[in-house]
């Protein structure tokens, strides 16, 4: 297992990710201030020594607002990936090994959730509790666990009837051993690309909702919502619109590069 051997695209992906994480975590140490205070005498300014990324239409500090929005996105990504992967893998192994009833039940639940495109489901959840980070997180995780579940279940189902597992059973090994030596080593490398694409999707989903103004509500900074807010000022201050666009695209690209490198 050459886990630490990274492909070129993974190296680029991880570097981009590292830059984004460092920026979101360290922005306030580099430039003091707060992201919410308005300064109407200093709106739509270009980047300068005082405001490194300029100010928006309320005169708010873009360097800090962008960092805050990115923090929110990263948090959403991490939470969704963790919840969805743990749930999905656990249920996937159980469905494939614990008999027909549980498998059928979970299959029914999956069919139910997959009957609606993910974004539509998230939109309805967003309508129930407008602007709630928690509800958004629940909705996205609810959709994303399925991918991990299906991959895990397919792998374990295939392996459970393989000669290797049959042989281990014949030798008297228990279920935990089967998981440790047979299932997990095959599942684990598949999880990484799923997690990378899942993180990108979670962030995109939140930004999409922000973009159509039904996601996280102002004044909290959120990437999609910033894009739609700054679009009207596109001709006066194109650099402002570019900032959330670039951060969003950078994050998604970084995830895709990490994930795709691992797939090959």
């Amino acid at each position: 297992m050459n886990r630490l051997k990274l492909s070129l695209s993974q190296k680029i992906g991880f570097s981009l990710l590292l830059v984004l994480v460092l920026y979101s975590a360290g922005a306030t140490f580099l430039q003091a201030g707060d992201s919410a205070s308005q300064n109407l005498s200093h709106i739509l300014s270009a980047p300068d020594g005082q405001f490194w990324l300029g100010t928006d239409h309320y005169g708010r500090n873009m360097w800090l607002r962008l960092a805050e929005a990115l923090q929110l996105s990263l948090m959403m990504a991490v939470l969704c990936v963790l919840t969805a992967s743990i749930t999905g893998v656990t249920l996937g192994v159980l469905a494939a090994t614990r008999g027909h009833t549980l498998d059928r039940l979970l299959d029914f639940v999956v069919t139910l959730i997959l009957a609606l495109p993910g974004l539509v489901l998230v939109l309805i959840f967003a309508a129930i509790a407008p602007g709630s980070f928690l509800v958004l997180y629940i909705a996205i995780a609810l959709i994303q666990w399925i991918e991990y579940f299906r991959v895990t279940r397919a792998i374990v189902q295939r392996l459970a009837v393989s000669p290797a597992v049959q042989s281990s059973k014949l030798m008297g090994f228990d279920n935990w051993y089967l998981f440790k030596r047979h299932y997990w080593p095959v599942i684990a490398p598949q999880l990484f690309p799923l997690a990378a694409f899942g993180a990108a999707n979670a962030v995109l989903m939140m930004a999409s909702l922000g973009f159509v103004s039904v996601g996280i509500q102002p004044p909290t900074a959120e990437l999609g919502q910033m894009i739609v807010e700054l679009f009207p000022y596109y001709s006066e201050a194109p650099w402002l619109l570019a900032q959330p666009l670039i951060v969003l695209a950078m994050f998604v690209l970084a995830c895709h590069l990490c994930g795709k490198g691992a797939e090959q």
Partner: peptide, 13 residues
């Protein structure tokens, strides 16, 4: 039991 394809009969991990 011994298997037809030994590579499929043991864990590679």
């Amino acid at each position: 039991k011994l298997y037809q394809d030994p590579t499929a009969a043991v864990s590679h991990a």
